[in-house]
Design a protein around this nucleic acid. Structure first.
Lengths: 229, 229
DNA sequence: AAAGCGCTTTGACATAGGTCAAAGAGATGT
DNA sequence: ACATCTCTTTGACCTATGTCAAAGCGCTTT
């Protein structure tokens, strides 16, 4: 259990909690690990608990009626998923698959709700976190409905380069086909747009390695909706 | 305050609470009312509390960079909005405007968090409710990104006829222009699709009164993605 | 009734992006 | 090095939907 406790630090969901609260969480948290490609849960499965990513990456996706995969999100270290089903009591609304060798913490529903029932601070943390998530989702809706593909791509590249710290590099952590799905489009369209951006001198794309050459140019596309002729 | 207390019943956010909890809520809730078209808050305003609709209807919308209005949602009696900003501490992410003469309950942020801090049951209710909302949002994302306009319209018509209890009628509670925005499209496109559905015998549309003539047909469009030639 | 106003419908047109098909380009195992 | 396999790129084409413009329709006001 000690090992579990050590992993609780750096999880936003549990930030600002007391040592006792950490102990309690460590008592109910269970370590799990998944190989790349392994399924963690499927859409419709009963939500018996939620997960926190310790290392690795988890892909959340749905399969449309026509059988096409729409990727909703990737979760990395420190991020949690599946909490919603813990509280709604409904099944998971999407599939979760390990996108790499992944270490997880699993918190069973019943023990966790018991914990929270006696601990308003924990509940408040949870509320803040879920609210934050809701806010991000709203942003995603906006992006998907109001913006065009080049804007979404520009935003994503800027997001990547920001996240990695390196101001110019954007190492794709997924295949281009997966990226296309994440952006709500198809590989062909993504490829064409990348080619255009290359020609326009905005980026230099070699394989999964994309270098940002003209950040203001990308900014203009991402935030002002500038066209990409 | 008695009046406030009486209005707490039937609010899902507060369902299953004890009499004492109702009393506490009634003590901090403030009645407000807005005339049609009146602005309740604007995007970016500080989230000083959240609202519950008692009667009437509230429109939540954003204005895009190009100045176009995108309607995100309508909230009716019993529904709450603005909770997220209470917990994230950020400003409101969208505009709220009364779509009709509306009576509201306002719960100030500080008093409400104080309340919840001492009451895990209330916090859990809140968690369940927010989770539910998050789930709905996920569905909305799916709709906007995976589906085409006829599917979205079919879904909305079915939703309306279900909500009103009447299995065949779907009285639009908004103008067709507003409906277009809610569906993420423009009036012209909506009009053309309604015309097609009329010709196909799926519905009969006269003004804001839409009668569903072929429910299985609409179902096929809404859930199987059947085309509308 | 006439005039004015907002909403809705219709038409002609432009375009982003999806589909289908095929060629290239890396990987990986033999 | 070869064969394969998968991912990516490119081209030709099609469709849904947005834009622009004009006409129609239903209200209210005069």
């Amino acid at each position: 259990m000690k090992e579990v406790r050590g992993q609780l630090a750096g999880i936003p969901l549990f930030s600002g909690l007391s040592g006792e609260q950490y102990d309690a969480l460590a008592r109910i948290g269970v370590r799990r690990s998944s190989r790349k490609g392994e399924r963690i849960f499927s859409e419709g499965d009963e939500g018996t608990g939620f997960y926190v990513v310790v290392t690795g990456r988890v892909k959340i996706s749905k399969v449309s009626a026509e059988g096409k995969e729409q990727i909703l999100h990737f979760f990395g270290p420190g991020e949690s998923f599946g909490e919603v089903s813990v509280f709604t009591g409904q099944g998971f609304p999407a599939d979760a698959v390990a996108a790499a060798q992944t270490a997880l913490l699993f918190f069973p529903r019943t023990s966790f709700t018991a914990l929270i029932r006696n601990d308003p601070a924990l509940a408040l943390n949870m509320l803040a976190q879920l609210s934050q998530r809701l806010r991000q989702f709203a942003g995603l809706i906006e992006d998907l409905s109001l913006k065009e593909v080049p804007e979404r791509l520009a935003k994503y590249l800027l997001y990547l380069s920001g996240r990695d710290g390196d101001a110019r590099a954007a190492e794709l952590d997924v295949s281009k086909g997966q990226l296309a799905s994440l952006l709500g489009t198809i590989p062909e369209t993504l490829s064409r747009i990348l080619t255009k951006m290359n020609r326009r001198g905005l980026i230099r794309s070699r394989g999964a390695q994309i270098t940002i050459l003209d950040r203001p140019g990308l900014d203009a596309i991402a935030f002002e909706g500038k066209k990409l002729p």
